[in-house]
Design a protein around this nucleic acid. Structure first.
Length: 585
RNA sequence: GCCUCGGUGGCGCAGUGGCUAGCGCAGCUGAUUUGUAAUCAGCCGGUCGUCGGUUCGAAUCCGACCCGAGGCUCCA
C-alpha cells in the first residue's frame, strides 16, 4: 500500500486499486504457468473489486487447484520483486507469443502507431504482453483471495473456444479485504431467492422451471404494486385494457416476431393451426388500436396492459425473479403524433421517477440507445427521434449514458437500470420508440386536414417486469417492506390466552379499518412470538396483556424500535392508515 | 446453449461402498399461561433429483437426462 493510500481521493484510490488488481492478475498468471506449464495466457483485466485471468487449459481448474494456485501466488508476492515494463518492437513481441494464438490475435489488433510493451516481475522469470499499469512490487499486493472459476468464451463469443477463468479479489490492506468479504456476506443475506422462501413470498418448482409460484403473501405485494401503478395511470391519464394470451401465428408473422423472436416463443398447435403464446404485448395493442378508426383528437392514446408474457430463456441465464420465463409488465403503448413524442417521454420519465422515489430507488441509471446497423426507417426519422430523446434527457437528468448502436431495429430507446444487493444491474423501466409497428399494422389517424397519417408508437414500462421489480425491491429493502406493501401489517400478540378475546376485538377493528392484521395465538411465550414477528419483518407488533386489557389500550412494538408505545386502538389506526396512505418508506 | 460445482424429509445441513439414513428448524400432540428476539417433552415426516449401469451390497462409484448455483465482450 502506498503510505498515503488513505489520503488519496476516491478516483486516485480507484486507479491504484486497478493497478493492484491488474498486477494481481499477472501474479496469478505466473502461478498458473508454474503449476500448469501447458496453460496458455489470454487476458487478465482488473474488474470491480478484483480481477480475473482467462487461461486456455486442457482441464478446468478444481477448487483444490485454486488453493494451490493461491499458495503459489503468496510465494511470489512474498518475494517482493519489481514490476518492470519494457517497450519492444512488434517483431520482438510476436516472437515472445509465437505459440499462443490468443496473444497473437491481441497483438494483431493493436493499432500500428501504438507502443508495444512487455511486463515482467519475479526478476524476469515471468513476462507477459501487457499494456502496463502496475504497482511497484509484487509485495504491494497486501490482501488477495481467489474467489471462483468459470468457463468463459474467448472474447465473450460462444462461437469461440471456451477458456477457463479464475476470479480473484485484491485489496490494499487486509482490512479492506475483510470488509469486502463481509459485504458479500451481507449481500447474500439479502438475496431475494432466500428471502422469498423465508418469508413465504414465492417458490419455484422443477415442473415449470424459471416460473415463480406466488404464495398468498407474495401475491399481496404484487397486487399492491399493481394497485399503485394503476393509481399512477389514473393520474397520468392511461386507459387499461385486457388482451388475449395466444394468437394465431399469422399475427406473429405480421409483427415480425415470427422471424425475429420465435426462438424465445412458446407455440401450441390446435385445430391444425399453429399458435404463439405472446412474449410481448405490442401486437395485441396494435390490434386493439385498429379496432376502430381514430382522429387526431384521440391522441395521445395511452393503453396499459398487464398481460402475462412467456419467453423462453436459455437455461443458463434464468435467475430467481429477476430473469424468469413467465411474467407480467406494467406495460403500456402510447399512440401519438410525431409532435407529441417529446412531451410523452417527459411525462413518462416524471411518472417513473415519482414511482422510483416511492420505493427508495434514488439512484438509477438512464441509458439512451441509438440506431443499430440493422434498422427500419430512414436516417432522417432516426435523427429526429434521437435528438428528441436527447433533449428530454438533457433536461431531465444531468447524468445519462449513450449506448451507440444499441437501439432496437424499430427505434431508439431509453433504459433505466437499478443495481441489486450484489451490485448486479437490472433493467427495470424502458421507453422505446417504434417506427415499424404503425407501418406493419397500418396504425393511422385522421389528421386535421382529413388525411390519413401513421401514428407513432411508444412502448414503455415503468417498473418493467413486476416479478423482476419485486426481486430487486426485496434486495434493495432487505425485505423490510414499507407498510403499504408488506403482507402482514400488524400482528397481535396475546401474552396469555386469557387475552385472546380482547385481541379478537382489536383484530376486527383493524380489519374493518382495512389493515392486514393477524393474531398469533400459538402456544408460545410472548418472547417467541416477538421473535417470530421480527423474523417475518412485520412492521407492528401489538402486545396485549393484563395492563392493556385493563386500560383498554394496546402496546406497540415496531420492527425497528424495541420500546413499545402504549396508545389507544383508535390512535393506532389513525397513524397506521396515514402511513399506508402516504406510502411512507 | 457452453464451463465448473451442486441436488439427502417443507427449509438449512451431516453422512464417500456394509446394520432399521442422522441432526436442527418448521409441522403435529401434550404440558406450561409466561411482559418485549427461541419454555419443555413426545410424535409425524425421506424409494437420498430421475432413469440406467457396476457390485454380493449404492445416498456413496460410472453414464445419460432434469433442476439449481456461479460465470460466459469491464479487453495486451
Amino acid at each position: 500500500m502506498p503510505k498515503d493510500f488513505n489520503q488519496l481521493n476516491f478516483k486516485e484510490k480507484q486507479i491504484y486499486l486497478d493497478k493492484l488488481r491488474h498486477s494481481s492478475a499477472h501474479v496469478l498468471a505466473e502461478a498458473v504457468i508454474k503449476l500448469f506449464p501447458k496453460a496458455k495466457l489470454t487476458i487478465g483485466p482488473p474488474i470491480e473489486d478484483g480481477f480475473y485471468y482467462d487461461f486456455d487449459v486442457q482441464n478446468a481448474f478444481t477448487p483444490k487447484d485454486l488453493k494451490k494456485i493461491e499458495q503459489e501466488m503468496r510465494r511470489i508476492i512474498n518475494q517482493d520483486t519489481d514490476f518492470i515494463e519494457r517497450e519492444v518492437t512488434r517483431d520482438e513481441a510476436m516472437l515472445s507469443v509465437k505459440d499462443n494464438q490468443f496473444k497473437i490475435e491481441i497483438l494483431e489488433s493493436i493499432p500500428k502507431n501504438e507502443k508495444i510493451t512487455l511486463c515482467s516481475h519475479s526478476n524476469g522469470n515471468f513476462e507477459d504482453l501487457c499494456r502496463g499499469g502496475h504497482v511497484d512490487k509484487t509485495g504491494d499486493i497486501k490482501a488477495l483471495k481467489l474467489m471462483s472459476t468459470s468457463g468463459a468464451y474467448w472474447r465473450g463469443d460462444e462461437k469461440n473456444p471456451m477458456l477457463q477463468r479464475i476470479y480473484g479479489t485484491a485489496w490494499e490492506s487486509k482490512e479492506s479485504l475483510d470488509n469486502y468479504l463481509n459485504r458479500r456476506q451481507e449481500a447474500k443475506k439479502r438475496d431475494h431467492r432466500k428471502l422469498g422462501r423465508d418469508l413465504d413470498l414465492f417458490f419455484f418448482d422443477d415442473l415449470s422451471p424459471a416460473s415463480p409460484y406466488f404464495l398468498p403473501k407474495g401475491t399481496i405485494i404484487l397486487n399492491e404494486l399493481y394497485k399503485y401503478v394503476r393509481e399512477l395511470y389514473e393520474k397520468y391519464d392511461y386507459k387499461e385494457v385486457v388482451t388475449p394470451q395466444i394468437f394465431d401465428t399469422e399475427l406473429w408473422k405480421l409483427s415480425g416476431h415470427y422471424s425475429n423472436y420465435s426462438e424465445n416463443m412458446y407455440f401450441v398447435k390446435q385445430d391444425e393451426k399453429e399458435h404463439g403464446v405472446k412474449p410481448m404485448n405490442c401486437p395485441a395493442a396494435a390490434m386493439l388500436y385498429k379496432s376502430k378508426s381514430h382522429s387526431y383528437r384521440d391522441l395521445p392514446l395511452r393503453l396499459a396492459d398487464f398481460g402475462r408474457l412467456h419467453r423462453y430463456e436459455r437455461s443458463g441465464v434464468t435467475h430467481g425473479l429477476t430473469r424468469v420465463r413467465t411474467f407480467t409488465q406494467d406495460d403500456a403503448h402510447i399512440f401519438c403524433t410525431v409532435n407529441q413524442i417529446g412531451i410523452e417521454i417527459k411525462s413518462f420519465l416524471d411518472m417513473l421517477s415519482e414511482s422510483y422515489k416511492t420505493f427508495g430507488f434514488n439512484e438509477f441509471r438512464l441509458a439512451l440507445s441509438t440506431r443499430p446497423e440493422k434498422k427500419v426507417g430512414d436516417d432522417k426519422i432516426w435523427d429526429n427521434a434521437e435528438s428528441i430523446l436527447k433533449e428530454v434527457l438533457d433536461k431531465f437528468s444531468s447524468d445519462f449514458t449513450i449506448e451507440d448502436g444499441e437501439g432496437a431495429f424499430y427505434g431508439p430507446k431509453i433504459d433505466v437500470f437499478v443495481p441489486d444487493a450484489i451490485g448486479r444491474e437490472w433493467q427495470l423501466g424502458t421507453i422505446q420508440l417504434d417506427f415499424s409497428l404503425p407501418d406493419k399494422f397500418d396504425l393511422e389517424y385522421t389528421s386535421q386536414d382529413g388525411t390519413r397519417t401513421n401514428c407513432v408508437v411508444i412502448h414503455r414500462a415503468m417498473l418493467g417486469s413486476m416479478e423482476r421489480f419485486l426481486g430487486v425491491l426485496i434486495e434493495h429493502l432487505s425485505a423490510d417492506f414499507p407498510l403499504w406493501l408488506t403482507p402482514v401489517q400488524s400482528i397481535i400478540i396475546p401474552i396469555t390466552d386469557k387475552h385472546n378475546e380482547y385481541c379478537n376485538l382489536i383484530n376486527v377493528k383493524l380489519k374493518n379499518a382495512g389493515i392486514r392484521s393477524e393474531i398469533d395465538k400459538s402456544n408460545e411465550r410472548m418472547n417467541a412470538k416477538i421473535r417470530q414477528a421480527q423474523l417475518k419483518k412485520i412492521p407492528y407488533m401489538i402486545i396485549i396483556g393484563d395492563k392493556e386489557l385493563e386500560n383498554q389500550t394496546i402496546s406497540i412494538r415496531s420492527r425497528t424500535q424495541k420500546n413499545s408505545d402504549v396508545i389507544s386502538i383508535i390512535d393506532f389506526i389513525i397513524n397506521i392508515k396515514e402511513e399506508i396512505k402516504l406510502r411512507t418508506l
